[in-house]
Amino acid sequence: MRRAETVAALATLAFGTFVVVQARALEDPGLDAIGPGAFPAVLGLVIAACGVVLLVQALAPRRREAEGDAEPPTRFGVLAVALALLVAYARSLEWIGFSLATVLFVAACLALLGVRSLARLVVTGIAVSLAVTVVFGRLLGVDLPAGRLFGG
C-alpha cells in the first residue's frame, strides 16, 4: 500500500510538472490579460504541489492511526483482459456487424467473469444481441453497424 501511495504521489508530481512545462511553451499573442498558457500553468503548479504533499505523506513515518485498509489486491490481469475484449468488440463491429460481435463479446465477457456453462454463454449472447437490436436498433433508431462481411 505504501509503495502504491509513493507511485501515486510521483505520478501526480510528474503530471503537474508536465502540464507546467507544456503550458509555459505556449506563445502569448498578447490578446488578453494573461494569455492561453497562464491558467493551465497555474493548474499544473497546483497539481505538482499536491504531488509534493502526497510524497511527503507517503514517505513520512506512519502515524499511530494506521489505516486498516486490508483491501484485496486489484485483479489487473482480469481487467486487462476485459479491456482487450472491449477494444476487440469495438474494432470488430464494422467488420462482422453488431449482432455477431455482440454475441461473441457477451459470451467472452461472461466467461471471463466466471460463467462456465457453454449453453448459458451462447443463449445469453444471442438474447442480449437480439434484445438490443430490437429495442435500440428498431425502436430508438440507433444505427447499429451491419458489418462489411455481410455487405453492410
Partner: peptide
Amino acid sequence: PKAYMITSILVLVVV
C-alpha cells in the same frame, strides 16, 4: 448475478 449485469452494461455503453 454480477457477471450478467456487468456484461449488459458494457454492451449498453458501446450501443
